[in-house]
Design a protein around this nucleic acid. Structure first.
Length: 567
DNA sequence: CACGGGTGCGCG
DNA sequence: AAAGCGCGCACCCGTG
């Protein structure tokens, strides 16, 4: 049963129950009722306990779910109309449906990142008044829900789209739950790590280790005013010292031979740590033993998540030892091995590649197949195929990869050609790539005009190839993101089943998500069960996306006290 | 002083 | 322009 929630008036929520009339595929609504804000959590909790397994339908999980969680109420399933709208508006599977062809409306404006100011909430069930920019859409929740159902029903593949929308909506719930629970984080441990590398926290200026390094760099380069944080300044100083670097990037400096290079690289590394994850970051983002970043499910065109603030998806390995389980609890750190190549295997139904990945490391399997000599070559060749490498070692290996795995390689090549023609490509479950922008099309037509110059043609070709690399990668990255969503959604259900009655943060729960990796915080005695759930969920995600096709999705599940212990 | 593009680097 | 995809963030520096 679907239950629609929408704001009727300040302090009042309109509740509409929809039941599907089995005979004619239509939905019938019961008489809507009004519920006061204060009564909403109890209402939702009662329905969640009922036998009907409601699916809550609302405009934006970020607005509805935090106050429920704060009131101790968990929701099993929902439809996030905002996120689903974005998918259905753009998917090639729903092209031509009324939803896809309608003029842009308020639901499109909600997808615009500029408009998506998340309403602040307090511990009580208490919504802020809608901002003018986020005013209640003219289009009602019910009308939008029905338009989406209609688009799916008319689509080229309703089963896949339903799965995608359910997974995307589950992701929305998980994103809010991750922030609610927070990543267990030891500020003391982080401070120890920083102090050990940089020296004690200074009250002003650079920490002593960095200060000493700057002194050394200035002396060695004979540049008393050198600011090593300024690339132009640094480059000039290097040139004066006879070091002919073309940039100040670490990878380039690494290849040069000069006594100043070693301390310079050390300075860059430590300076990065200080500015990105130093004490300022700690003060801003870690409170009461938890790191609570803002996750943005669906924040990337491919369906990957983004974050806003805190850089949660870039937590450097250097500081991961500060992610520490509570006493009596464990972290289960789980990682999907070679996710993207395995997803490509499923997408292309490449039996040879499936065999290479069966029961072992996929790259070793590629070596065993005889396609390449060593694991590193297998890896660089696969990455090159998925990213569109044309030259270098990766480019040289492509013909051999193509001979051994023609179906897999053809799939990404086809995606690249489609992008070069300016067409959309679509993921396994139905998320489509955007079309290239206006100026891309202008550049292409300019190259075919009567008086096009060779510069026009070069530029058009470059832009076309760039877009082709994007679409080539899109099909793989977007499908991998779908696998990860299914994995996590399935895992979430299994974690709930391990302790059905317990509140979220008193039972095994997700605390981190990083594209192909999750962390579960769990009472120690349940850690083995959690690890089993992680593996079972991965297998289930594989079946959801690729049915009976025999591609395996092995996951590592390390039971540890801190994230640094999980390799 | 605010803003925005460029640079560089962390993650997958 | 590292050999190729997707991000976020801090900082520098030129511009208004």
């Amino acid at each position: 049963m679907h239950i629609l929630l929408e704001r009727a008036a300040p302090g009042r929520v309109l509740v509409t129950r929809l039941t599907r009339a089995a005979a004619e595929e239509s939905v019938a609504g019961e008489q809507p009722e009004l519920v006061g804000d204060a009564a909403v959590p109890a209402f939702v909790a009662a329905e969640e306990r009922g036998a009907d397994r409601p699916r809550w339908v609302w405009d934006d999980t970020r607005a509805w779910y935090p106050p429920l969680l704060a009131a101790g109420v968990r929701v099993e399933r929902c439809v996030d109309l905002r996120l689903c709208h974005t998918i259905l508006r753009n998917s090639t599977l729903t092209a031509g449906t009324p939803l896809a062809t309608a003029d842009p409306g308020p639901w499109d404006a909600m997808a615009d990142p500029v408009e998506t100011t998340v309403p602040a909430h307090t511990a009580l069930f208490d919504f802020e008044e809608p901002e003018p920019s986020r005013a209640v859409p003219a289009r009602s929740v019910r009308a939008e829900f029905e338009a989406q159902e209609d688009a799916v029903a008319r689509s080229a593949d309703p089963r896949r789209l339903r799965l995608l929308l359910a997974a995307e909506s589950a992701g929305a719930l998980i994103g809010v739950e991750l922030q609610h629970a927070g990543l267990p984080y030891s500020a003391a441990r982080h401070d120890e790590l920083l102090s050990g590398l940089l020296g004690p926290r200074p009250s002003y200026g650079r920490p002593v280790v960095l200060e000493e390094l700057v002194r050394e760099l200035r002396a060695q380069l004979d540049a008393p005013d050198l600011n090593p944080d300024s690339p132009p300044d640094l480059l000039k100083a290097l040139h004066r010292a006879g070091i002919m670097a073309t940039s100040t990037r670490s990878w380039e400096l690494k290849r040069l031979e000069h006594p100043v290079i070693e301390p310079l690289l050390r300075y860059k590394k430590l300076s990065r740590l200080l500015t990105a994850n130093g004490w300022t970051w700690l003060d801003a983002w870690v409170r009461d033993g938890r790191f609570r970043p803002d996750y943005v499910p669906g924040g990337v065109v491919t369906g990957r998540w983004a974050t806003r603030g805190g850089g949660a998806l870039q937590l450097p390995k250097q500081v991961r030892a500060a992610v520490v389980a509570d006493p009596g609890w464990k972290l289960v750190v789980a990682d999907a091995a070679q996710l993207e190549p395995r997803v490509l295997t499923g997408l292309s139904a490449d039996q040879a590649m499936a065999a290479a990945g069966r029961g072992k490391d996929l790259y070793e399997g590629i070596v065993a197949s005889g396609a390449v000599e060593e694991r590193a070559h297998a890896k660089v060749a696969m990455l090159g195929a998925m990213y569109g490498a044309t030259s270098g070692e990766s480019g040289r290996l492509m013909p051999r990869l193509q001979r051994a795995f023609p179906r897999a390689v053809r799939l990404v090549e086809d995606a690249a050609r489609a992008g070069e023609r300016g067409e959309k490509v679509t993921s396994r479950l139905g998320r489509s790539s955007p079309l290239p922008g206006r100026q891309w099309a202008v550049a292409q037509s300019a190259a075919f005009g009567a008086e096009s110059t060779s510069a026009d043609e070069r530029r058009a070709r470059t832009l076309a190839r760039d877009w082709g690399r994007f679409t080539r990668n899109f099909v793989v990255q977007a499908s991998a993101a779908e696998w990860a969503l299914c994995w996590m959604a399935e895992l979430r259900n299994r974690l709930t089943a391990l302790a059905p009655e317990a509140p979220l943060t008193e039972s095994p729960h997700l605390v981190y998500f990083l594209h192909d990796e999750v962390i579960v915080h769990t009472p120690a005695e349940l850690a083995d069960d959690v690890a089993d759930a992680v593996r079972a969920s991965a297998a289930q995600a594989g079946r959801l996306l690729f049915g009976g096709f025999p591609v395996e999705f092995p996951v590592t599940a390390a039971i540890v006290d801190d994230y640094g212990q999980a390799k």
